[in-house]
């Protein structure tokens, strides 16, 4: 439930039909493969965060004012 690692293309729009869900695009060979995958995961995360957060960060933060509770 709710824990499928999503693999979305980073900044670029690209469609890779037939790519296995978890395998994704071929990673560059060598020791960079892991860090490359990490960067892609992070960029995809950043995209997703951008898609759910309101664009004006400062207004959002300053507007969040409550009265004190207990």
């Amino acid at each position: 439930m709710a824990t499928q690692p999503q693999r979305r293309p980073g900044q670029t729009e690209q469609d890779t039909p037939g790519a296995p869900g978890d395998g994704g695009a071929p990673a560059p060979a060598g020791g960079n493969a892991q860090s490359q995958a990490r960067v892609e995961e992070l960029d995809s995360l950043l995209d997703e965060i951008d898609s759910v957060l309101e664009s004006n960060a400062e207004e959002f933060v300053k507007g969040f004012v409550q009265k004190g509770g207990q």
Binding site: A2, T3, Q4, P5, Q6, E41, L45, E48, I49, V52, L53, E54, A57, E58, F60, V61, F64
Partner: peptide, 29 residues
Amino acid sequence: APRLDQIDFAYHDIHPERGLFHLLVRRGR
């Protein structure tokens, strides 16, 4: 940076699609 403050707050948003904690769960983080 305000964007990071916003992320700090949005982590605690209870909305299951919009809240960042829930987003991290979906991504296995």
